[in-house]
Amino acid sequence: MHLRKFDYFQLAIALGGLAIFIIMAFGYVNNLSYITTIDQFGLHYIREPLTPERSWFFRNITRAGNTKWTALVMAITAIIAVLVRKWDVAVFMVVNVGVFGGGVMSVFKHIFKRPRPNIYHVIEQSGYSFPSGHALNAILLYGSLIVLVHYYLKSEDNIRYAFMTLFAALIIAIPVSRVYLGVHYLSDVLAGFGLGTFLLIMSKEIIFKYRTREVFENAQNSESGSNIAK
Score class of each variant (00 low, 15 high):
K209D: 07
Y8A: 09
K68I: 15
F208Q: 05
V84M: 04
F193M: 05
S55F: 11
I172R: 09
L43S: 13
R116Y: 05
A19I: 13
G196T: 07
P52K: 10
R54L: 11
D157L: 12
T62F: 03
Y34G: 02
I172E: 06
G225S: 00
L190T: 08
F92K: 05
G225P: 00
R160C: 01
T197L: 14
F112Q: 08
N66W: 11
S33F: 09
G16W: 10
F108N: 01
G192Y: 02
S144P: 00
D39V: 05
R178L: 01
E217H: 10
Y210R: 13
I111L: 10
G143T: 00
D39F: 04
Y210N: 09
G102L: 05
T51A: 07
T67W: 11
L148P: 00
E156S: 12
I23V: 15
L200E: 01
E53L: 15
I207Y: 01
V149S: 07
T36W: 10
I119S: 09
G196K: 01
T36D: 14
M1F: 07
S203I: 05
R160M: 00
V104I: 15
I46R: 00
F57P: 01
F112M: 10
A78D: 13
A168Y: 09
A71H: 11
L18F: 13
A219Y: 05
V94A: 07
I13S: 11
Y180T: 02
I174S: 00
N66P: 05
T77K: 04
L148D: 00
M24I: 08
V95T: 11
L153Q: 06
F130R: 02
G192D: 06
D39C: 05
I61S: 04
L15Q: 10
V99S: 06
S226V: 14
M93R: 02
F41T: 14
M105T: 12
L136M: 15
P49I: 02
L199A: 07
H150P: 00
Y151M: 12
V99P: 09
K209Q: 15
A169L: 08
S155M: 12
R63I: 12
N60F: 11
H44I: 14
V179K: 01
E124L: 12
S203V: 08
M1H: 04
L199S: 04
T62M: 03
H134D: 03
Y45A: 08
E214Y: 13
N31A: 11
I20C: 15
Y152F: 15
I22P: 03
M74K: 00
K68V: 15
Q220N: 06
K154S: 13
R114F: 09
W87R: 14
P131K: 00
T70D: 13
V89L: 05
N66H: 12
W69R: 06
